[in-house]
């Protein structure tokens, strides 16, 4: 029972991590939270669902379709909603409000387009399980964990090892100074949205495989991921990952040993406690760091 719940928690936690890292990436560069992140997740799930239903019954290809759709959507939102404000050097609060608006519009457009039905992926491994140490571990949980970790590892490598990553690390310290080095910061911001969108797409497709696909899927899970990002420290990638895994496991333990109904209550309670006790989170940079 314990091991099963632990694995379940790790699996949910790694999906949270995919979304939380998206929040952290954008926050670290632009110092605002992209509240329109949720619809990228939803679109990722729907793209994977339709691909699996009508084209090819192969989960990996479905995930790739989800990534493409979600990344393009994130880039589109950045170009249409955020870039005009960034060019005018608007206050970050306006960007957040725009993000909230885009999120509400997106959710409703999805309901109009696809209806509010819950849909199940034609290919999912939710009924299959393997025995490890006497515990039944769902195959879908293993897939989720492995795919998420590979994706996060790739992002980490890009940031640590490439010239793009160098620009991202520089820009997370100071966007203005980076632009004075001749780095096209608008292109850099677009790239960041593509990366965050891709991670959101993976998360959406995996959530669709584990649970079901429905229009408010993204909003519901990105709210949780946002808690993880705050818990880990907004703007910190390792913080977001650790926060996500901790929240995933604690949620899973609470629903197993206390009550399923208290699970979400617990998550939001955590958010409030962190904001009161340690607003910079586990590994967050203090806001003075940003000039």
């Amino acid at each position: 029972m314990f091991i099963q719940q632990f694995v379940n928690g790790i699996s949910v936690g790694s999906v949270y991590a995919l979304m939380a890292v998206g929040y952290a990436l954008i926050y670290s560069l632009l110092n605002f939270t992209n509240f329109a992140h949720g619809i990228s997740v939803t679109i990722g799930a729907f793209a994977a669902f339709f691909f699996l239903t009508y084209a090819m019954q192969n989960l990996l290809s479905g995930i790739i379709m989800g990534v493409i759709a979600a990344a393009l959507l994130a880039a589109f939102i950045q170009l249409v909603a955020y870039r005009p404000l960034l060019k005018r050097n608007s206050k970050r609060i306006f960007l957040m409000i725009i993000g909230l608006g885009v999120s509400v519009i997106g959710d409703n457009l999805i309901i109009i387009a696809f209806s509010g039905r819950f849909r199940i992926f034609p290919v999912n491994f939710s009924s299959e399980s393997i025995k490890i140490f006497g515990a039944n571990i769902g195959v879908v949980d293993i897939i989720i964990f492995v795919v998420s970790m590979i994706a996060l590892l790739i992002v980490e490598l890009i940031i640590r090892k490439t010239r793009l990553g160098l620009a991202i690390r520089g820009a997370s310290f100071s966007l203005d100074t980076t632009s004075l080095m001749g780095v096209n910061t608008y292109k850099l911001i677009l790239t960041i949205f593509l990366i965050a969108g891709s991670l959101a797409g993976i998360a959406g497709a995996l959530l669709g495989a584990k649970y079901t696909t429905y229009p408010s899927l993204g909003t519901f899970y990105t709210n949780k991921a946002f808690i993880c990002a705050v818990f880990g420290g907004l703007g910190s990638l390792p913080g977001a990952m650790i926060g996500a895994l901790i929240l995933g496991v604690s949620e899973s333990m609470i629903s197993a040993y206390v009550s399923t109904g208290l699970r979400d209550l617990f998550s939001y309670f955590i958010l409030i406690v962190i904001l009161l006790v340690r607003p910079s989170g586990l590994m967050g940079k203090s806001s003075e760091n940003k000039a």
Partner: peptide
């Protein structure tokens, strides 16, 4: 190119990386 009154290096990057990022152009 410019330098700043209150130094604005990329504090979290190494000396070497600070030059690399500027070579972007």
């Amino acid at each position: 190119a410019r330098t700043f009154q209150n130094i604005r290096l990329f504090n979290d990057l190494t000396v070497y990386e600070n030059l690399h990022i500027a070579y972007q152009k």
